[in-house]
């Protein structure tokens, strides 16, 4: 599906409780994003809804289990399911995370059930490039790779995540999915919490043509001394909106998504968040044109 890259596209994540809303309300966003794995079934109502949605909206498939940074190969059964879905939906974007998910237990393949961080080293970079090449070749599509929030760090990391992703994209042709909230969470958990500075430092490393999508989300802020959990359960915070302005100023009209996965609000609240993203981006883009 071809998209006019000069138009600002704004979308929302679609979750099961909003299926009726999206099918029965006028179109107010440009695209919707779903978690690929939620549609791995061979049929059923959810897949039927997605097929109806794609007649009206662009669809982005966001995968959460591929584990491109895993030492262990991604099981072919997983990739086959993803390929079937991709061929059926013809998404305009396909994304995954810069993390690992696969491992071994008692000699058997296991899935971590979460997005686990990787050390940002040349060895891991080479491994992830290998996996991204393999997946892009298998799917016949370009991937966009998302920076992740993390709750532990590796001493061995000597590249920043931004440097790691930049190099990954240069070697594989993949693009970057910039999640501003993930930068904010890592800033609060590991970098002293100056979110504006963390976002600025991060995005200034990335080439201006490397970012293919932006994610915006909110999360609960815990009491002092506790780790911030990236729960996607709140409106986008002021700090993340400010980071978004910096990102739009640097990368231009990049498709932008409001992610809200837990404690879902009314559909109208999600749409308002998307409209806020559109307004902010258009203000910045208009200013840049002057």
């Amino acid at each position: 599906m071809l998209v006019n890259n000069k138009a600002l596209l704004v979308g929302v994540g679609l979750r099961h409780p909003h299926f009726t809303d999206i099918l029965t309300t006028p179109k107010q966003v440009d695209f919707i994003e779903v978690h690929s794995e939620n549609f791995f079934g061979q049929g059923g109502a959810a897949l039927s809804v997605l097929n109806q949605v794609r007649e009206k909206y662009l669809v982005s498939l966001h995968s959460t289990s591929m584990g491109l940074g895993s030492k262990h190969d991604i099981p072919m059964a997983y990739l086959e399911r993803l390929k079937n879905l991709t061929q059926m939906i013809d998404p305009f974007l396909m994304s995954e995370h810069a993390c690992f998910t696969w491992g071994k237990q008692h000699g058997q393949t296991m899935h971590s059930g979460d997005l686990l961080p990787i050390a940002h080293t040349q060895v891991n970079l080479a491994r992830m490039c290998e996996q991204v090449d393999k997946v892009q070749s298998f799917l016949g599509r370009e991937l966009i790779i998302e920076n992740v929030s993390a709750y532990v760090k590796f001493d061995g990391s000597y590249l920043s995540e931004a440097e790691f992703l930049t190099e990954l994209c240069q070697r594989t042709g993949a693009k970057i999915l910039l999640d501003i909230n993930n930068i904010a969470v890592n800033s609060l958990n590991f970098e002293g919490g100056d979110i504006q500075q963390s976002v600025a430092d991060y995005i200034n490393v990335l080439p201006v043509n490397s970012v293919a999508q932006i994610h915006l989300a909110g999360c609960q802020i815990p009491t002092i001394g506790q780790l911030v959990i990236d729960d996607h359960a709140r409106p986008v915070s002021d700090e993340v909106w400010q980071g978004y302005q910096l990102a739009i100023a640097r990368f231009g009209a990049v498709p932008t998504l409001i992610e809200w996965d837990n404690d879902l609000p009314q559909w109208s609240v999600l749409i308002e968040e998307a409209q806020k993203a559109r307004d902010i981006a258009q203000t910045i883009l208009h200013r840049e044109q002057l």
């Binding site: 030492k71 491992g103 990787i118 050390a119 040349q122 001493d155 061995g156 990391s157």
Partner: peptide
């Protein structure tokens, strides 16, 4: 994690 050195095999750290 103290052991994830630059040349640490990926499998070990993961």
């Amino acid at each position: 994690a103290p052991y994830a050195n630059n040349d640490e095999p990926i499998e070990n750290e993961q």
